[in-house]
């Protein structure tokens, strides 16, 4: 039988009808299936958006922040959740110190890539790590452009003090083998109304910490500055922000430094780059 025009039009109409039905079904199903509420663990206590401002002009590379963090979190050896780099932007520019905590990105690549939701974003902006759930695939390490994630390759050495605390994602110890570790902005300190360990330890007052919704950040000396103003007038920048990670850590440029530059310091770190 030769195909008539009529039958071909019928054939096309049938196809269009099927597509429409499928479309409706998908729409209805997706409205049902895909939940629109946050799970309780993503909702942080209090309605905050934590933000950190690091004034590079004040950082003298003493690494007090790293030491305080390591002490407080019993950080395993060779991990530095907040790490002080010695960097320079170009050949002509002098070197400066750059403290790098976790950037707690608003569009965190690690959270995107985590297959089990072991690392997740909270409503207060913290990218937190649940080591009861981590399977150790290290996709987040590959994803993080800031090298801010670490892995417990072997069983970490424990201290009695560390083991005395039960595990909580808010302080992330006792540490365990085969899972990923990171800076989490000390949520247990924040709960107690205290600054994170690194900000509390920075005697130079270079590390400011606060709530973006309060529009104020405070450093160890109690100096409180208006976040939006200092970000605007101080030409704050975010590390590698061209990658679209939307970090929550802002840096003030290392202009007009008061301390000797890294290459002039007696205890300058050896650069192994």
């Amino acid at each position: 039988m030769a195909p008539s025009r009529r039958s071909f039009i019928q054939f096309l109409a049938g196809g269009a009808g099927l597509l429409f039905l499928g479309w409706t079904a998908l729409k209805a199903l997706s409205a049902r299936v895909f939940q629109a509420a946050l799970p309780p663990r993503s909702v942080a206590p209090g309605n905050h958006r934590w933000v950190m401002v690091i004034d590079l002009a004040k950082c003298d590379g003493c690494k007090d922040c790293t030491k305080a963090c390591n002490k407080m979190h019993f950080v395993p050896p060779f991990q530095e959740w907040i790490k002080v780099y010695e960097v320079s932007d170009n050949m002509a520019a002098g070197p400066y110190f750059l403290a790098r905590p976790c950037m707690q990105c608003d569009n965190p690549p690690c959270v995107r890539g985590c297959p089990t939701g072991a690392t997740f974003k909270r409503t207060d902006g913290i990218v937190i790590q649940d080591n009861d759930r981590c399977i150790g695939c290290r996709n987040c390490i590959a994803q993080c452009p800031y090298s801010a994630r670490f892995f417990n390759w072997g069983e970490p050495k424990h201290t009695a003090e560390e083991l005395a605390h039960p595990y909580s994602i808010e302080h992330n110890y006792p540490h365990r083998m085969g899972v990923v570790e990171k800076c989490i902005f000390c949520p247990d300190m924040l709960r107690a109304g205290k600054l994170p360990a690194c900000a509390e330890a920075c005697t130079m007052g270079a590390v400011y910490f606060g709530d973006e919704l309060e529009d104020a950040v405070t450093n160890q000396k109690g100096e409180t500055i208006q976040f939006s103003k200092v970000a605007k007038r101080g030409a704050a920048f975010r590390l590698l922000q061209e990658l679209g990670t939307e970090p929550r850590v802002y840096y003030l440029p290392p202009a007009g430094r008061k301390y000797p530059a890294p290459d002039e310091k007696p205890h300058a770190m050896g650069s192994t780059a």
Partner: peptide, 24 residues
């Protein structure tokens, strides 16, 4: 009032639950 507690707008694929755009 503070804006409601929510995940940042910028993070699209960081949702704890599966969304239609990536799941379907």
């Amino acid at each position: 009032p503070r804006p409601p507690a929510a995940l940042p707008e910028a993070g699209v694929l960081i949702t704890p639950y599966l969304t239609a755009g990536i799941g379907l």
